[in-house]
């Protein structure tokens, strides 16, 4: 669906996007993660035809974004990170205006707009002035606007920014629904756990380069040399820590009030042997599990832990 090759964008001496390569499959939800200033918005703007690239190519369904931008306007739905609305328009009129910009015939517009407002749960607000809508509603309205011409690819730049938790959940549900409708979605966010839940793949961008890419699990497997194991004893916490220190493949033991976490560099068999050793040392164990990593940890590790 989308193929980016050796994309470079420079602003004078500053390189915002540096030899960026990416492939997004049709029907997937691709999450763009990166610290502020990493080049997410710049890349998305180039994809949407709003910025010229310094070099490199972006192809959507085989069409070049720069050379065939007119053809691609029908295929792309774009929602920027910051956007304004025409406050003196009603919701229905707002949608009608954007339907007009895609030359959708007048007769088809009411049914189309109603169905789009249904998707974003704004049908009850169709006669309200855009000005009177909440931030979350405006975000949803902008999303429905980007769907007005039935695009195949949706480029959504931080669609959940500034939303309260409930509005974020609603936005996630809408995105899942859009995926079932066959849309390919590229979404950026710095709210990382959210992307983990909805994205089929993520790409971590840092200093304009793709630092890591794949499913959350793939990236974690690749990045994590040591697995984090968690053990909860019924009693004898001190003894447990002492035994663990004597075992091979264990580093960074962190003792908490009722459990112990440690980095373990070994196979599953070695982990099971470790558990057997501890039980044979007469330490009663209530639970023993591998701690699941999350996007936040991956993000901090890949980007060096600093939000630029």
């Amino acid at each position: 669906m989308l193929e980016i090759k050796n994309l470079v964008k420079k602003y004078g001496m500053v390189t915002a996007v540096n030899n960026f390569n990416l492939v997004v499959k049709k029907g997937s939800i691709y999450g763009f993660v990166g610290p502020n200033g990493a080049g997410k918005t710049t890349t998305m703007k180039i994809m949407a035809g709003l910025l010229p690239a310094t070099s490199g190519t972006i192809r959507i369904d085989g069409f070049d974004v720069t050379e065939q931008s007119k053809l691609l306007k029908q295929k792309i739905g774009y929602m920027p990170d910051f956007f304004g609305v025409y406050d003196d328009l009603k919701v229905m009129e707002y949608m009608d205006f954007y339907a007009g910009t895609y030359y959708i015939p007048y007769k088809e517009r009411p049914a189309l707009i109603n169905s789009l407002l249904e998707i974003v749960d704004l049908a009850h607000k169709k006669d309200a002035y855009v000005d009177s809508l909440s931030r979350g509603m405006k975000q949803r309205l902008c999303l429905s606007r980007s769907l007005v011409h039935d695009p195949d690819l949706l480029i959504l730049d931080e669609p959940a920014s500034g939303l309260d938790p409930r509005a974020r959940v609603e936005m996630k549900e809408i995105l899942k629904q859009l995926q079932t409708m066959g849309k390919t979605i590229i979404i950026s966010s710095h709210i990382l756990p959210e992307l983990a839940e909805i994205c089929t793949e993520i790409g971590i961008i840092d200093h304009g380069k793709l630092a890591a890419e794949g499913t959350v699990q793939e990236i974690m497997r690749r990045l994590e040399k040591n697995r984090i194991l968690q053990m909860k004893p019924l009693k004898h916490m001190d003894k447990l820590c002492q035994v663990l220190q004597e075992q091979p493949n264990i580093v960074d033991i962190m003792e908490s009030t009722d459990y112990v976490e440690f980095a373990f560099n070994g196979t599953d068999e070695e982990a099971s042997r470790l558990l057997a050793n501890i039980i044979s040392a007469e330490i009663p164990i209530l639970s023993f599990k591998e701690k699941e990593g999350n996007l936040e940890e991956i993000f901090m590790r890949v980007t060096g832990g600093d939000e630029k």
Binding site: K45, Y78, G84, T101
Partner: peptide, 11 residues
């Protein structure tokens, strides 16, 4: 008003 980009991505 930050509406220009929305207009420029249309047909």
């Amino acid at each position: 008003r930050q509406t220009l980009d929305l207009l420029l991505v249309t047909k």
